[in-house]
Each structure stands twice: as structure tokens, then as C-alpha cells.
Design a protein around this nucleic acid. Sequence first.
DNA 1: GATGAATGAGTTTTCATTCAT
DNA 2: GATGAATGAAAACTCATTCAT
Lengths: 199, 199, 199, 199
Amino acid sequence: MGRTFTESGRRAQIVQAAIEVVAELGYAKASFSRIAKQAGLSSTGMISYHFAGKDDLMHEVVAEVTRVTAAFMTPRIGAAEGGRARLRAFIESNVELLAVCPRHLKALIEVLPNLGGDDPANVGYQDSMRVAMELQEQAVRAAQEAGEFREFDPRLMLVALRGAIDAVVMRWVGDPTFDVTEAGRELADTFDRATRAEP
Amino acid sequence: MGRTFTESGRRAQIVQAAIEVVAELGYAKASFSRIAKQAGLSSTGMISYHFAGKDDLMHEVVAEVTRVTAAFMTPRIGAAEGGRARLRAFIESNVELLAVCPRHLKALIEVLPNLGGDDPANVGYQDSMRVAMELQEQAVRAAQEAGEFREFDPRLMLVALRGAIDAVVMRWVGDPTFDVTEAGRELADTFDRATRAEP
Amino acid sequence: MGRTFTESGRRAQIVQAAIEVVAELGYAKASFSRIAKQAGLSSTGMISYHFAGKDDLMHEVVAEVTRVTAAFMTPRIGAAEGGRARLRAFIESNVELLAVCPRHLKALIEVLPNLGGDDPANVGYQDSMRVAMELQEQAVRAAQEAGEFREFDPRLMLVALRGAIDAVVMRWVGDPTFDVTEAGRELADTFDRATRAEP
Amino acid sequence: MGRTFTESGRRAQIVQAAIEVVAELGYAKASFSRIAKQAGLSSTGMISYHFAGKDDLMHEVVAEVTRVTAAFMTPRIGAAEGGRARLRAFIESNVELLAVCPRHLKALIEVLPNLGGDDPANVGYQDSMRVAMELQEQAVRAAQEAGEFREFDPRLMLVALRGAIDAVVMRWVGDPTFDVTEAGRELADTFDRATRAEP
DNA sequence: GATGAATGAGTTTTCATTCAT
DNA sequence: GATGAATGAAAACTCATTCAT
């Protein structure tokens, strides 16, 4: 006990290195060589030894980032009451992550578009993403029926929101002068106005 | 005279092929080989002959897409009067492009994040992007001062808007059942509510 | 005209080098590196440039050897009359090849067992091998019905004959003291006695 | 005492796994990884620990198969009287092995051609093979002198016989519809006719 | 004896680029 | 201008082997 399948010291170290390299150079240039160098490994063979392939490693990157961000955001969202407050908590806590683990966020945004593919190994992962999206949709619909949100297409709004947050993250990642709290509040204001029921 | 620097038949043909390959496979997998095959060329040497390198080709892709999208959007935006109407026209015409040249949009979104770099050749390009962004910011500020828009950070809003539109484009590119007019209106509603002055 | 798909100078040169390397080191150790060195190429990339992969190259090796051996054996077999004489011509001309192109024969014997596989690209090839085997079986059956050969299972006999010839080839390949004419006659005697009708 | 050099539990287990992997995938693809997996070992280090190298392991494979086949064939050959009967017993018992331990035979045929090499470690092994061959040659010569066999080159005949048996084994290994008894009798008939003195 | 992580050379393959024709 | 063969570096991955525990 005590150590899960995905953690074996080296594995975690490689995943961390991959996050940093992807965040810095982008997915296209994140080769095993650079990841190995970042991790202080003498050869790329070590990565192949611990991961079935590039896709496997990148999935682990996504899983790790998802874990970290969920640990940060979930309690904050859970502490909010009502649809509007929950939406605000979602946006603000997501933007605040920029100050907590900026490279994690950037890495996630870089990797995700490159994982969706024909590879059957991705099916399970994509299923879980779809389920998460559907849960969010249901929450939005519930708030609409409760009269908190106006009428709009939940899916379109969620896609737009996701894109807006990601764009903000990508634009200001690594900028120490960026005020995440203020930006989070502004972005939350934006989508609050866009979604709230008519006064 | 008679042909400009950027057009020479072959060059245009290669740029078109690059747009299609990038849209279909993503930037990371858009190699000269695949672009040459798409363009019906028997060797990649032709591409290196016409372009100084991959970055040069990709810049041309961006330029071409920018040209096409500007030709579509500019008159529509110009026909609108007032900040709110112009914002709506911007969003709707951008989303409508999804039905006009979906691969151009997707290619642009794939390429752009991979061009920002240390390469000095990019400086001029990034300058022009910054100028365009500043023009948009000024327009937003003018509408704020005219009382059409409420107070918000123009840059943050523009970044969020850009991300929201791109996310919608990426999500529904190639989906023939997607109603671009309706989606454009919804997304415009969203940002109209987010930006308009208090009633 | 004048040059077929499979011949482009370099391709033929690489196939020749592959034949020599396989004959000398065996299939397992015939890497692209060694073949490139044998061919005087500076990199293995050139081989991948001309061939779709190792299987493609090895198929070409088989095709080339088949071509050469058929050119030698076919007229000799055709000049013989009757089943017994044809069988003798088949065996003798096959063994005589040992003096003509010993490395071709050895390469063929090395490669063949490693090509039979699940790869769908091999299906066509294996079909042609099966057809050739069936033609030989029919010829044997005809000679049996004509009273030249005794009763035996043609397929078993052909498999045994093939193995016997190959074993002789492998045993004495590269041995300059080996008398191929005498050995061919002896091996033909062996199978003539084994197959001829009772006197 | 109590355990010989070649048997230590683990060693035997690894040799068994190697036989199975070589028989199934061929010598070229029989890596330590696959053998370790087949043996239920978690790492290839165990194999390197017990064997000096790949050649050492493969020699052990040959030794083990030789042991098993000798145990089966020797009493059957010994029970026969006279050269002709002994030859028949040799062939029939060899083919019958196909039903007893098909993978052993196939593994042997795969490994043997890849062992003959410049490696000084093989000298002793090849000596023993040569000695075995010479014993067989002497037996053949004795039968020739006794008038049982006609005149032919014993070595050529033995090589051809070995190749014929091996080809039959390789062709029908794993085929449950193959009648080993009938095939053994046919093949023995073939070589009996080829070798017996004129009636 | 036994383990499994680490190593570094090796594999095939693809890449962008160059160059003689 | 155009071609396509050639190049060499780099990619992902596998290999047999070693070594500290």
C-alpha cells in the first residue's frame, strides 16, 4: 500500500519534467530527449521503460494536472451555494491556479488538443471527459430551471467559457505582474452577466 | 510586375495544402512530406525551394487565412454602427466563417500558438498582431467612453472573447449539423450581456 | 519504359547490399545500418527513403533472387522431357546455382522463414507462393498418372525436396572445394530413386 | 552435489520459456524481454544473471532440446536392427516428435543456424556436432559396406535427410490434422528407396 | 541469490534541408 | 524554375547488460 500504480518516484519525476517541457516549448517540441534532460536522465530509454509511449506519458500528464487542479478547485466550488456562486467559484479558482501552478495549466492546454484521436486507448479517457462535460451541463440546466440562469444553450456556453479561461491562462502565464485575483473576478463578472437571469 | 512576392502559383498552392494538412492533422504532425503529398508534389524540395523554412511557410498560412477572414469580416463589421453592433458583427461574422472556410479557421488556431517565439523573424509579425490588438482595445475604450460598454478591462475581455470564439470553432468544426447563425447569435448575446452598459 | 518500378539504380544497389548482408550475417543481424554500410550509403535514412520498411526491402530481396534463379533454372527445366528428367533438371540446376550466385541462395533461405507473417502485405506474396507450390504438385501428379512416378504424397515429397536442397545449399555455401555438378547429380539420383515407378 | 551445472530451477524455467518464445516468434524476435515475460519474470536482469549472454542461453536451449529428442529417439533407433531399419527408425521417430514436443523441434531449427559463428565459445559445441555427424557417417558407411545401402556420399545424404525432416517439421508444426505416423512412414519410404542397395 | 531500476548503444523511421541536374 | 535523390540529425522505441540494494 501507500503507492499507487501511477507513482513510482521516477514516473512522477518524469511526469513533472514533461509538464515543464510541454509548458515551456509546446507539445510539438516536447521530445523525449528534452524531457529526459529536464528530468536529469541520461537517456530517453528510461522514459520508454516507464511509459508505454508518448501518448501514455501525455495521458499521465493530463491525469496529474487534473488531479492537482481538482484538488484546488473542488473545495472552492463546493463551498459556494447556488448556481451563480458556483459558476463564479469555478472561474475564479481556475484563474487563481495561474498563480499556484502556471505550468500545469499551460501544459494541460497544450496537451489536450493533441490527445483526441483515433487511438482506441483514448476512448476511455474521452468518455470520462464527455461525462464530466455532461455533469456540468446538468448543473447549468438545474440553475436555469431554478431561475438563476437565463435561457441559453448550456453546451455552447460551457465551451465558450472553457475557451475564455484557457485563453486568459495562455496569455498571462508566466507574467508576474498579472493580478490573478482581479482577473478572476473580472472574468467571473463577465460570465455572470452573460448567464444570470434578467433582473 | 504582375505578381507579388507572396503569390507565384506554386507558393499559393503550397500554402493551401498546408492549411488543409494543419487543419486535419494539427501543427505537430504537419510535416513537409504530408504537405507535399497534399499539394500533389513529388518531393519536399519544392517547398524548401519556395519557402525559407517551416516558420516562413506557416507565417504565409497565417497571412493567407488572415486575408480571407478579413475579407469576410471587415465589410460586415464596417456595416454595423455603434460599439455593441460592431461587437455583435465581429462575433457573428467570425462564427459564420465556420460555414465558409472551416479549415482556414482551424489551421489558424493550430498555427498561431506555435509561432510566438524567440525567432527574430517573428518580431515584425508579432508587432502587427500587437498593433491589431491595440486597435481593438481602442475601439472598446471608445465604446466604453461613449457609454455603450460598461467598465471592464478591454484587454482581458478581448482575450476571453478570442478564446471563446476559437473554442467554439474548434469544437464544432466539420460538424454539418451545427447551426452557425444560431450559435453566432447566442455567442454574441453572451458577450453583449457581458459588455453592455447597465440598463 | 526501360526501367520498371522496382529498379532505380539505388533501389537495386540497396537490394544487392541486403542480399550480401543477409547471406553473411543472417536475417536477424541484417540491420539497415549494416546494409547501408555495405551499399556505401552514409545513412540508413536512404533505405527508408526507397523502401517502405524492412519487410518491403526483404520482399524485394526475395523477388530479385527469385528472378535470378528462375532465369537460370527455367530454361534448364524446360529443356528436359518427362517428369523424371524434369525433376532431375530442377534439382541439378538448383544446386548448380550454388556456383553461380551462392549468396543469393543463402539470402533467400534466410529471409523466407521470416516473411511468413500476419502482415496483410504478405498475403499477396504468400498467395503466389502457394500457387507455385500447387503447380508443382500438379506436375508431380501428372507424372504419377503417366506412370513415371510411384505413388506418394506430392506435397510431402516437395516439402522434403525443398528442405533437402536448401540444407545442401546452406551446408556448402562458400565452399570452393564443393563440386556442385557432382552433388547435383547425387541429390537428383537420391530423389529419382525415391520417386520413380517400380521397375 | 544434487544439482548439475545446467539445472537450478530458474535456469530450467528460463530455458523452457526461451524454447517457447523462439518456437513462436522465431530467433530474430526472441528478446530477453519476451522470454522474461513468458517465464513470468519481472525483469530481464534475472536472465543475464543466470546466463552469460544470449548465446549462452541459446546453447542451453539447444542442449535441452537435444536431450529431450535424444531421450525419445535413441531407444527407438537402438531397438532397430540393421542399417535400413535404423534409418527408418531415425526418420520416423524424428517426425513423431512433432506430436510429442513440436515447439522443441521448431526452436531447435530456429536457433541452430544462428549459433554457428566465430565466437570461440561455440567451438566446443561445434566440435560435438561434428563428432555426432561423423558417427552417423560411419554408421552409414558400415551399412554400405554390409551391402544394405547402395553407394552414395554419406555426408551429402545426411545433410539432405536432415533438411528434409526439418522442412517437414517446420511445414506442419502446429497442424493438428497432420498424421505424423503416416508422414514418418512416407518420409522413411522416400529415403529407404533412395539409399537401399539395388534389389 | 534475487530484484528491478538504470544505462547506453542499437533499432527503424521521419524530418527539414541541400544539391546536382 | 523545377526535380528528386541524398543527407544527417533527430525522433520514438527496444535491446542486452549492469549494479546497488
